[in-house]
Amino acid sequence: MSETAILKIWRGQNRDAGHWETHTVPFERGQSVLDGLRWIRVNKDPSLAIRFSCINANACKECMMELDGETVYACTARLEPREMQIAPLHNKILVRDLVTEIAPPAERFAAKEKQ
């Protein structure tokens, strides 16, 4: 049987009411964690929320999240054939699933326009 990576992913819109979801994804050497997350959206669950633009160049710096408790860019973290725990940044405002508010305040919409 070919190798797989087991991604244990935090899901939810509220820190106190989230849950962990586990997906098994095919493993191929040279893939990133972001590749694994994108595979899940295409093949299993398109509702998984992730933020990224540049896919694999590490240029946009949008795909920050926590892998086994460490802050990483999902595009440069290597996918490995083991269980990997993936969560949103704990020190940023949660938006949904793995997406947090990472833009500087002056580049956000809601803060200014909503009053």
């Binding site: 633009s53 540049c54 160049a57 240029a59 946009c60 710096k61 949008e62 990472i102 833009a103 580049e107 919409f109």
Partner: peptide, 15 residues
């Protein structure tokens, strides 16, 4: 100035 992604991060320029 608006963007569907974050300001000055996405698109082709940064690549």
């Amino acid at each position: 100035l608006i963007d569907r992604s974050l300001i000055g991060r996405g698109g082709a320029t940064v690549m």
